Amino acid sequence: MKKSVFLGALTVAGLAAGVAGAATLDDVKARGTLNCGVSTGLTGFSYPDANGEWQGFDVGFCRAVAAAVLGDASAVEFVPTTGKTRFTALASGEIDVLARNTTWTFSRDVDLKFTFVGVNYYDGQGFMIPKELGVSSAKELDGATVCIQTGTTTELNLADYFRVNNISYEPVPIETNAEAQQQFLAGACDVYTTDASGLAATRATFENPGDYAVLPEIISKEPLGPLVRHGDDEWGDVVRWTLNALIAAEEYGVTSANVADLASAPTDNPEVNRLLGTEGELGAMLGLEADFAVDAISAGGNYGELFEKNIGENTPIGLARGLNAQYTDGGLLYSPPFR
């Protein structure tokens, strides 16, 4: 059971071993394009708009990495991946980084041979139902049919939760969020379960979102974040410190609107100076330009800007910062120092 949940760990690990040690940073520079793995479509996080342009919170991170490495936020090839295909795509080298909403777990880190570079969204698994079902708690779902994406942590979480609460369910396996939405709206399942952020994103696309409720129970920890292959630490550092740059920028008040001015000359804050490359040699340590963080922040804004624009409370997704607030505001976001 566990191997099926983790998508044939030995096969994926073998693929990862085959490309371990590859100089991804050099490959990306030579190619002139970042190959970034995203979802097949999750509103607010990674989805093609009406013009076929990829948008979203995870997409914004991909563009920030492309800007940091190549100086061009548009130099990204977005590769849609499902719960089943995402790890093979990364292990085989088809993509350079996986930025779709993926949970950092022990098995994925250790057994599948991937390196999670950080957490860009702290989440947890929830349940969505039609209000007409008349259910107010997940513990009332005995015998329910449940739409669940295969190849995800939600499969094992669901089995554990129902077993612990001594209730039964009938799984309705689906592969993509679009398929889950279609099946759920068609009544093929009573419940849709995935990360709470994904439920909010999905419900926002419904014609009548008010007809559906997300139940109060959050049954797991789902730290979501970008990941790279084991054995390519230099590339991992680039992706990690691009994420940290976006988080630190919000803490220090560096935004897409003021970053160019702040980078034009040293400020009275040494940490901001090092972040923006007007002091020290941090960019060179990564094999990047001194102003790599300036380019990353300019691409779509700091962490807070990306959050508010794509999934925040003033968007149809309507997510509060919660655990994803800066540590100074009671959240968990915290960048190591730039020094």
Rank of each mutant, 00 (worst) to 15 (best):
V164A: 14
V135H: 03
L332T: 07
Q182R: 13
R321W: 12
P337S: 06
S137N: 08
G277R: 00
R86W: 07
C189W: 00
V228K: 00
Y252H: 11
L275G: 02
G93A: 09
C62V: 09
E250K: 04
W54F: 09
A248H: 05
Y303Q: 01
P173M: 04
S256A: 15
F114I: 03
K131M: 14
T24M: 09
G143N: 10
N310S: 05
P223Y: 07
A200G: 09
L90P: 01
G301W: 03
G301K: 02
T194Q: 07
G280H: 03
F127A: 06
E222H: 10
G277T: 01
E305W: 05
R100M: 13
A68C: 10
G134Y: 05
R240W: 06
T176G: 12
V172P: 06
A16S: 07
E251H: 13
E140T: 09
I247L: 03
G143T: 08
V65M: 06
E289K: 11
E94T: 14
Y327R: 11
R163F: 15
W235E: 05
D26I: 07
L319M: 14
V110Y: 10
G331V: 04
R163A: 13
A13P: 04
P209K: 05
D160C: 10
A16Y: 01
S197T: 13
T193R: 02
F6R: 06
E289F: 13
F78V: 03
S4M: 09
S107Q: 10
G18L: 12
V135C: 06
F57C: 04
L112A: 02
T24F: 05
V214I: 15
T278C: 08
A290N: 06
L262D: 03
N165Q: 08
L276F: 10
P223N: 12
V228R: 00
E251Y: 13
G236L: 03
T153Y: 03
L282I: 08
F116V: 01
L275V: 05
S256W: 11
V5P: 00
T176H: 10
R63M: 12
M285N: 14
F206M: 04
G330K: 01
P337Y: 02
D211S: 11
K113I: 08
Y334M: 11
Y303W: 03
A186W: 07
T176S: 11
V19Y: 14
S256I: 15
L276W: 02
W104H: 06
L333S: 04
S256F: 15
G60E: 09
T255N: 12
Q183T: 14
N157C: 04
L42K: 00
T102R: 02
F206D: 05
G21E: 15
D160S: 14
A91S: 02
Y212E: 13
P48K: 11
G18R: 11
N314V: 12
S168W: 12
P337N: 07
I218L: 09
L112K: 00
L275W: 02
D232G: 10
A260N: 15
T85E: 08
A296I: 15
T150Y: 08
K309M: 09
Y252L: 13
L227E: 05
T40F: 11
